[in-house]
């Protein structure tokens, strides 16, 4: 579906992504992990066409994304960035409706179908009940669900999420990730998610890509990637990897430095 071939890119003179390749298959949930500065967000920016590829290419359904128009790309790929400017007090409903932008012309009003899509996106994310509140008044968990509703109303085939769980407590993290998993399973929505928390990545992804200094250090199933050797080499810290007794997925336990032996 999305394949990245020998991608090199970065900012100004600084090369951040130093030649990496991987493929996201339709309907899978792919996680991208790696330490700070390993290039996760930069990779995302390249995939969503914010920054250009210097070398190599990114193709979506066999087509180079550089030749797909911004509008067309936005109809296929939705992105939840890490930071968003929310200083204007839009109503939740109007805010979710902005997700329809790539499907609309400037002056055509929303059709009945658009309204149905917007309403069902809100119902699926459990945000319909506060559709008339202002986005500036929402709690972190509510806002994150509204953002997902907006992305869903875009009707994408692929959803890119850059640390959607940052600033959420553990209950809300699970709630958001379960919600995304549901769309992944039921609607075959392909997910590519940047994770900071390795345990969440382990539980919710089919496959993981581990980045180190702008290159892929390991990729495969969580059990293949999240070995203590890989984590210690990439994160420069000592860990113990156990198995979650319920889900059988790897679980990482960290060890404080004074207990290292």
């Amino acid at each position: 579906m999305l394949s990245i071939n020998n991608l090199v890119c970065g900012y100004q003179q600084k090369e951040i992504i130093k030649g990496l390749s991987f493929t996201a298959r339709p309907g899978e949930s792919l996680g991208i992990i790696g330490p700070n500065g390993s290039g996760k967000t930069t990779l995302f920016r390249a995939i969503s066409r914010i920054i250009p590829a210097w070398q190599g290419s990114i193709t979506y359904q066999e087509k180079d994304i550089q030749v797909i128009s911004h509008r067309d790309l936005a109809r296929r790929i939705a992105v939840l960035p890490q930071f968003l400017n929310l200083s204007f007090p839009f109503l939740v409903r109007d805010f979710v409706a902005l997700g329809r932008t790539p499907h609309l012309n400037r002056l055509t009003p929303l059709t009945k179908e658009d309204h149905n899509i917007i309403d069902s996106s809100m119902k699926q994310t459990d945000t319909f009940s506060f559709k008339d509140r202002r986005i500036t008044e929402l709690s972190g968990g509510e806002l994150q669900r509204v953002l997902i509703a907006q992305a869903l109303s875009q009707q994408p085939e692929l959803l890119l999420l850059d640390e959607p769980m940052a600033h959420l407590d553990i209950g809300h993290q699970v709630e958001i990730l379960d919600l995304l998993k549901k769309f992944n399973r039921e609607k075959k929505l392909t997910l590519i998610t940047v994770f900071h928390d390795l345990n969440l990545a382990s539980e919710y992804c089919d496959r993981l890509v581990l980045l180190k200094d702008g290159q892929i250090y390991a990729q495969g199933t969580p059990a293949e990637v999240l070995t203590y050797q890989n984590i210690e080499a990439v994160y420069k810290t000592v860990v113990v990897v156990k198995e979650n007794p319920i889900t059988k997925k790897p679980h990482i336990l960290l060890i404080p430095k004074d207990k290292w032996r």
Binding site: H70, R75, I77, V79, N85, T101, P102
Partner: peptide, 13 residues
């Protein structure tokens, strides 16, 4: 108003 990146993600040049 949502920011440059989000605007591009929604197909705005």
């Amino acid at each position: 108003t949502l920011g440059d990146e989000k605007a591009q993600h929604l197909g705005i040049k």
